[in-house]
Simulated assay, not measured.
Amino acid sequence: MADKLLEIKNLSIEYNTEIATVYAVNGMNLSLDHGETLGLVGETGAGKTTTALSIMRLLPEGIGEVTAGSILLDGHDMLKISEEDVRNLRGNTVSMIFQDPMSSLNPVMTVGDQILEVLAIHNENVSKDELNKKVDQMMELVGIPANRKNEYPHEFSGGMKQRIIIAIALACEPKLILADEPTTALDVTIQAQMLGLINDLQKRLNTAMILITHDLGVVAQTCEKVAVMYAGEVIEYGRAEHIFSGKYLHPYTQGLFNAIPKLDEDVKRLETIDGMIPDPTERMEGCRFASRCKYAKERCKNAPDMIEIEEQHYIKCHLFAESKDKNAGRDEKDGR
């Protein structure tokens, strides 16, 4: 067993189209321990789904390209191993719960056969009767009667299709689940049930998860660690208690929290973050958030380094680098 289940180092990803080159992920660093849950948050276009697809090696062929960095998954270099080895890892070591159930299921196969297909690929020595029993178990596990396994995707509602996607992803009990907005099509009650189901599996099998979401409430209830992405970069990373305590926060993370409605405040208009996310087709120098940041200064024309401001809490911002330097100077003066 590798020390880290997942290690992403200096990852950069581009989408090359006839119109322009899109710089989707830029020098990303991330790691995940066995059994750990990481919430990956940020607005649309930040590079969250692209990161997950690169781990699965499912970037669009001929368009998506990893231009730098490495992805180590359970000791396997995902960017260097053969396509056959990748297929053996998908579903067994890593599974992905896709955001859109409508396009994730095969319309001409029954839902039971789609779950069975995943199980059969990774359990060649198991009898078909045993595999069919496992299909029934997975259907019941996500709250769908097993007698509906011979029905087709069009016979299910959007929420039930999403449950089938979750059943497929969990069927082989993978070490890592990549959950891309897994509860988008579900109502609040079923959403809680599905997140509870995924959490129960994690505890039972020591399964790790990267939860991609816009819902900070879900992150607070589900995740041990949080990574905030902006314009293809992780700009803040730490344990959930660090991020949600509000003690030290990147200006962008502050903006995300300020935009959340508060039950104890009666306001006519929610706060917003001024401006727009940078054009991903343009290479940027300096801080990517500078054009929207109220603290921006001349120094922000240079790219900030990721610094540790407290144990296991990292922020990529000149504002905190400057504060840390001042505190270090005071400590030296005081003889500490």
Results as ranks from 00 to 15, higher is better:
residue 284 M to Y: 11
residue 215 D to M: 12
residue 256 L to G: 10
residue 267 V to S: 12
residue 228 V to K: 01
residue 255 G to F: 11
residue 131 L to P: 06
residue 57 R to E: 09
residue 244 F to C: 09
residue 194 M to T: 05
residue 143 G to E: 08
residue 156 F to K: 05
residue 233 E to C: 10
residue 307 I to Q: 06
residue 84 E to P: 01
residue 45 G to W: 05
residue 230 Y to N: 05
residue 256 L to S: 09
residue 181 E to H: 02
residue 60 P to Q: 10
residue 267 V to Y: 12
residue 201 L to M: 13
residue 38 L to G: 03
residue 1 M to G: 04
residue 325 D to A: 15
residue 300 C to A: 13
residue 76 H to L: 05
residue 220 A to K: 13
residue 294 K to P: 08
residue 58 L to Y: 07
residue 57 R to S: 08
residue 108 V to H: 13
residue 303 A to C: 11
residue 229 M to I: 11
residue 209 M to T: 02
residue 62 G to Y: 15
residue 110 T to N: 09
residue 254 Q to A: 08
residue 292 R to L: 08
residue 282 E to P: 01
residue 284 M to F: 12
residue 216 L to Q: 02
residue 221 Q to P: 02
residue 18 E to P: 06
residue 290 A to I: 06
residue 147 N to Y: 13
residue 310 E to G: 07
residue 185 A to V: 01
residue 319 L to G: 07
residue 115 I to Y: 04
residue 297 K to V: 14
residue 248 Y to T: 07
residue 55 I to K: 00
residue 33 D to L: 00
residue 117 E to V: 06
residue 66 V to Q: 11
residue 336 R to V: 12
residue 127 S to K: 11
residue 303 A to N: 08
residue 40 L to I: 01
residue 40 L to H: 02
residue 198 I to T: 05
residue 137 Q to V: 14
residue 279 D to G: 15
residue 105 L to T: 03
residue 242 H to D: 15
residue 308 E to N: 03
residue 324 K to W: 12
residue 237 Y to K: 01
residue 68 A to T: 13
residue 254 Q to Y: 09
residue 53 L to H: 09
residue 190 I to F: 05
residue 264 D to A: 06
residue 95 S to D: 09
residue 147 N to V: 10
residue 125 N to Y: 15
residue 43 E to N: 13
residue 108 V to R: 12
residue 46 A to Y: 03
residue 277 I to E: 09
residue 294 K to C: 07
residue 211 L to F: 08
residue 232 G to C: 07
residue 83 E to F: 09
residue 45 G to Q: 05
residue 162 Q to G: 03
residue 31 S to Q: 10
residue 17 T to P: 02
residue 96 M to P: 01
residue 8 I to V: 04
residue 181 E to T: 10
residue 109 M to N: 13
residue 328 A to D: 15
residue 281 T to H: 04
residue 88 N to D: 07
residue 230 Y to M: 11
residue 148 R to E: 12
residue 254 Q to G: 04
residue 212 I to T: 00
residue 248 Y to Q: 04
residue 309 I to Q: 03
residue 206 N to P: 03
residue 199 N to L: 09
residue 263 L to I: 15
residue 94 V to G: 00
residue 43 E to K: 05
residue 74 D to I: 00
residue 178 L to D: 01
residue 208 A to V: 00
residue 104 S to K: 11
residue 315 I to F: 08
residue 100 D to G: 00
residue 64 G to A: 04
residue 123 N to K: 10
residue 305 D to K: 09
residue 54 S to E: 06
residue 125 N to L: 14
residue 5 L to D: 01
residue 232 G to M: 10
residue 288 R to S: 14
residue 97 I to G: 03
residue 9 K to D: 02
residue 44 T to N: 12
residue 55 I to T: 03
residue 76 H to M: 04
residue 59 L to T: 08
residue 109 M to P: 05
residue 272 T to V: 15
residue 16 N to M: 12
residue 131 L to M: 14
residue 160 M to R: 08
residue 286 G to T: 04
residue 168 I to M: 14
residue 174 P to F: 06
residue 55 I to G: 00
residue 213 T to L: 10
residue 94 V to K: 00
residue 40 L to C: 01
residue 164 I to W: 05
residue 205 L to R: 09
residue 237 Y to P: 00
residue 87 R to V: 06
residue 138 M to H: 07
residue 121 I to C: 04
residue 78 M to F: 02
residue 23 Y to W: 15
residue 19 I to M: 15
residue 97 I to W: 01
residue 91 G to F: 04
residue 320 F to I: 01
residue 141 L to D: 07
residue 93 T to P: 05
residue 254 Q to P: 03
residue 77 D to M: 07
residue 15 Y to G: 10
residue 193 Q to D: 10
residue 248 Y to H: 10
